[in-house]
Write a protein that binds this DNA or RNA. Structure first.
Lengths: 330, 330
DNA sequence: ATGAAAGCGCTAACAG
DNA sequence: CTGTTAGCGCTTTCAT
């Protein structure tokens, strides 16, 4: 026979006070008699009482909880780490769910959070449409999108300057004398994939270079990247430099290039740990994760304070981190 | 003026039925009149009703939620990924919190989960003592430890066969003719660090080799690993092979060895993505993450079913993944 | 400063 | 099959 979980009533009885007094003490009300305070504390310890968060939240309305959806809970997520810390400092709990880049799972996760009445949701949008969130937003849910814009619903949004990052890479490479600059990256149905590929096309045109066969955007796998590299290799005028559109592409490219890698001029979008362990160092376009997470929480707080203010989109600059030999093209 | 969130009462009124009927429908009770069903569905859509999970859980008792603590939410966690999927299949939500390897944060996270009345907690123990969990366990909380044993409280536990993994590495290396086998790894205050270092010492003794200066266990940083490598290098009879105690150590070792890396016989504990991108391939002792996560959930379910059964510890074998050139020592 | 009592939104007896 | 109603454990007026 297992003991019943002690409730606030048990504590009150044990301490010989009313539940209201216990509640006050638990919630840090200063004006509880010192003697009562001691007796209540003792009762709590004796009974091993832990307030039921569900009941408190139900009664209070607010949950003091921030939900977040990310692609995968099993992969590194610097933005989230920073947000996690700052949220704790604000007295918010966080609950994280993964979407696996599946719109259906994203929706399930988001609605599950709504049913738990989280105060806000940070979302890295996967689905085309987030319209189903509108009623929740009208009811006071605060939603901040990051990494990708929401599309069909007005949301505060934090984005990296994808086009600016590509510009930095082009500036860097053209300064070294490159003009034939190729690109391999993510599917253009994904916002970041589109922005980056499109930026590359623009710069190639500005340089008066042909775009034909130079920009490869699609799902990233070993085979697709290998195929793209092969196409580039066979071009009448092959590229002298390559930009990879995200970390996964960079890794696949390094893998495919193998020993040829060291002699390729590469700039990768996204910095990541271990880059320095690869056979040769290379330059990267780094996203400013710290600033991104700060901005996310700033938008969240502002929205909480002024629910009717117009939505904002903040674009955070990227930084070019130059690594490896910087040989001018001869 | 923001609209109030609709409750089950609003839905009932709108549909012209009782709240009980709405509740029944929501909870998948089959025997609700077809006409009512239609009207209730319409009311739910019209109002944008989302049941309040806090209230349901409070009323029902069980939360159908599984909590998990991990070292970092920002780092890859294969075990968790698998558990996440299986938990969903079981109809359980998961809530994950990170400990940052800090016993204090671990305790806070665990107690926060208890206050939310999660049905179970999967814990990768950090703190020396988990005694504070005993009252919760007595109250019916199911706790499963993984990766490290709990120490002072009886818990179902899933462990990798750390000593077995080291044995596999020694078998492999001695078959190649190595006898002077060194080790660099994690602090021995951490369970896995201790097990692995101690296993290495045992095997060296069995081989009749001196252990002096061959086993380096401590915090893993670039400097400490470099220092350890330096010591090994200066030994009267330097080692011919090196075992690294975890992924972090492996990476630091690779980093420190630099170009000398290719000519070192290395076996690393833990397999990880990107190993094949390093300048030279090497053999690893891989933990069986799939089997570990299955076992975790199995223990969880069994405990839920039979709360008083004796606790079990399951040790999951490791696998040696041989990579790179396998030159016998000459 | 403390207590009594009214709910928060929901589910589960219990009647009918 | 449906409705009525008593709580789940807590916070928060409203009195005192």
């Amino acid at each position: 026979m297992r003991a019943r979980r002690p409730t606030i009533v048990d504590v009150a009885r044990e301490a010989g006070v009313s539940v209201a007094t216990v509640s006050r003490l638990i919630n840090g009300d200063e004006k509880v008699n010192a003697d009562y305070t001691k007796r209540i504390r003792a009762a709590i310890d004796l009974l091993g009482y832990q307030p039921d968060e569900r009941a408190r939240q139900l009664r209070r309305g607010r949950t003091q909880t921030l939900g977040a959806t990310v692609r995968s809970i099993a992969e590194p997520h610097p933005v989230l780490r920073a947000v996690d810390g700052e949220a704790r400092a604000l007295g918010l709990s966080m609950i994280v769910m993964s979407t696996g880049d599946d719109p259906e799972r994203e929706r399930e996760a988001v609605m599950a959070m709504c049913r738990r009445r989280v105060d806000g949701i940070l979302i890295e949008p996967v689905a085309e449409s987030l319209a189903y969130l509108q009623p929740e937003i009208d009811l006071g849910l605060v939603v901040v999108a990051f990494d990708r814009p929401a599309g069909d619903v007005a949301l505060d949004t934090v984005l990296s300057d994808n086009r600016g990052g590509i510009r930095q890479a082009f500036d860097h490479l053209t300064a070294l004398g490159h003009r034939r600059i190729a690109y391999i990256g993510d599917d253009e149905r994904i916002y970041t994939g589109h922005e980056r590929a499109e930026a590359v096309r623009g710069h190639l045109r500005d340089l008066g270079e042909s775009v034909d066969g130079m920009v490869h955007a699609g799902p990233v796998h070993t085979e697709t990247v290998a195929a793209a590299l092969d196409v580039l290799h066979r071009l009448p005028v092959p590229p002298t430099a390559l930009i990879t559109g995200n970390a996964a592409t960079t890794l696949e490219a390094v893998r495919c290039l193998g020993t040829a890698f060291g002699s390729t001029t590469l700039v990768g979008f996204d910095d990541f740990a271990l880059v320095d362990l690869l056979p040769a160092a290379f330059t990267v376009i780094a996203q400013d994760e710290a600033r991104i997470s700060e901005t996310i929480l700033e938008l969240f707080r502002d929205r909480l304070a002024r629910p009717t203010a117009p939505v904002r989109t903040v674009v955070v600059p990227t930084a070019l981190i130059v690594r490896g030999r910087q040989e001018a093209l001869t």
